[in-house]
């Protein structure tokens, strides 16, 4: 490793965006049995910053963001979201999950509920909002992702792109401070990718703090404030999209980029 890249990795700990740190990960390790999925991960994501995480499959990208809302439990190090430390305490887990919305590769919509009910479920049961205002809030988010005409349908009646936009609306309705995207377009047919990216672009423009795991390099180049390249459970390089796509220093990064671009 050259001294410059070391600086860049160290630079990961400096928050971008407005400069106020929103998510802080310090020396995080994660093991699956005897396999180490995350190795000494340290990164700070600033308020209103968009961070795109890229890297080959199995490099720990998904695990990284899944640790942030406790879908996976980290074994070592510290994770703070909005100043609250993520601990074993269910109250801390719940408090952080309320701040963090997530969008999954497989959408994970509730197939037995209508689109509207998918969104109001959390509003009514977590935020204790009455039926009428909850439905109004849900409709507002559906309008935002341009899918309001499908409110009464079931997820199975929608296309993949529409389903993923519903999933985005469902997460947004909870009014989170941070949105995590775990390969949101990887399960979509190519013609559906655009509409989902469009919704995410709009969201980024509105000042949402976002961490996006994706293979969409175009999105990374245009929307990201910083790009993180991971391999073998480590952060290899962190930098602006410009830096990344024109002058990445690490051989592994270059090799990866040459393979996918």
């Amino acid at each position: 490793m050259t001294s410059e890249t070391t600086d860049l990795i160290a630079g990961a700990a400096v928050a971008g965006g407005t400069g106020e740190p929103k998510i802080v990960m310090e020396h995080v390790d994660k093991w699956f049995g005897s396999f180490q999925a995350l190795k000494d991960i340290s990164i700070t994501v600033g308020n209103q910053e968009v961070v795109v995480v890229i890297g080959p499959s199995g490099s720990g990208k998904s695990t990284l963001i899944r640790c942030i809302n406790r879908l996976e439990t980290h074994d070592k190090g510290r994770i703070l979201v909005g100043g609250t430390e993520l601990t074993r305490d269910p109250r801390s887990v719940s408090a952080i999950r309320k701040q963090v919305g997530m969008v999954f590769q497989q959408f994970n919509l509730f197939p037995h509920l209508t689109v509207l009910d998918n969104i109001t479920l959390g509003l009514r049961n977590v935020r204790r909002i009455a039926k009428k205002p909850a439905e109004e809030m849900a409709m507002k988010q559906l309008v935002r992702v341009q899918i309001e005409s499908q409110a009464k349908k079931y997820p199975g009646q929608l296309s993949g792109g529409q389903q993923q936009r519903v999933a985005i609306a469902r997460a947004l309705a909870m009014e989170p401070d941070v949105m995590l995207f775990d390969e949101p377009t990887s399960a979509l047919d190519p013609e559906m990718v655009k509409e989902v990216l469009e919704a995410m672009r709009e969201l980024a423009g509105s000042g949402m703090t976002m961490i996006v795991v994706t293979h969409e390099m175009g999105f990374a180049r245009e929307v990201a404030d910083r790009v993180v390249f991971m391999a073998d459970g480590q952060i290899v390089e962190v930098g602006t999209p410009d830096y990344f796509f024109t002058g990445a220093r690490e051989a592994r990064t270059r090799k990866f980029l040459s393979q996918i671009l």
């Binding site: 809302n69 879908l71 999950r97 997530m102 999954f104 049961n125 977590v126």
Partner: peptide, 23 residues
Amino acid sequence: VPKGQLEACQSLALGQFTTLRRV
């Protein structure tokens, strides 16, 4: 019931009982 359904509930901060009853 797919694991993703539970993860969706967790990510929404739904309680265990609500998750069980509604999803």
